[in-house]
């Protein structure tokens, strides 16, 4: 569990920077690093669903919402260093496509899912939970701990927005 402890220390440092820094853009970026580290921590703890939800809610929603709503204060540079920027973007697209190709080869073929645990849910779900909507019976009965985690993620996102957008303590 050494990697988990490293991630926790990283999250604490990121949260301290997000609260203490004076520049709003740096604060938002530090908040994003905390969200990314939390997502990796969920992945280490073997909960990939929560990791995806955390990635979407914390990083994408909070960061993009803040960035879109308060566009006045945040600097946005489009000029200069265009060669380096384009090169970095191309390299990341290449890395993503390469990893995506190797991941896709391991997936089951389209239309032929491997029904291991899902078959149990499909056949026993209505009898065991009584809910006609099988998605709800999985989300709120079989995998209710995941739902608890997702509710916690939303709670953390609200707290993070409150912490960054606070009025108390901000320098005029």
């Amino acid at each position: 569990m050494l990697e988990l402890q490293i991630l926790l220390v990283f999250m604490i440092i990121g949260a301290l920077i997000a609260v203490k820094t004076k520049d709003l853009l740096s604060s938002v970026i530090a908040l994003g690093t905390v969200g990314l580290a939390l997502s990796l921590a969920f992945l280490v703890l073997k909960s990939p669903d929560l990791a995806i939800a955390q990635l979407v809610v914390e990083i994408l929603c909070v960061i993009i919402l803040i960035r879109a709503t308060i566009r006045k204060d945040l600097p946005f540079s489009t000029s200069g260093r265009w060669f380096v920027n384009t090169l970095i973007v191309l390299v990341f697209i290449g890395v993503f496509l390469t990893f995506g190709y190797f991941c896709m080869k391991d997936l089951p073929r389209f239309g032929e899912p491997e029904m291991r645990i899902a078959q149990t849910f499909l056949s026993m779900g209505l009898k065991e939970t009584g809910a006609t909507n099988l998605v709800t019976s999985v989300v709120l009965d079989y995998r209710a701990y995941d739902t608890l985690g997702e509710a916690t993620i939303l709670f953390t996102a609200v707290i993070a927005v409150l912490a960054v957008m606070r009025r108390v303590g901000r320098k005029k």
């Binding site: 009584g130 709120l140 509710a151 939303l154 996102a157 609200v158």
Partner: peptide, 23 residues
């Protein structure tokens, strides 16, 4: 029907609605 599942749904809806509105 289905026992506690509607109550869980109501609790989550309170949380999601007010959380999103607050953001």
């Amino acid at each position: 029907s289905s026992g506690l599942i509607p109550l869980y749904n109501i609790a989550i809806s309170f949380k999601v609605a007010s959380g999103l509105f607050m953001i």
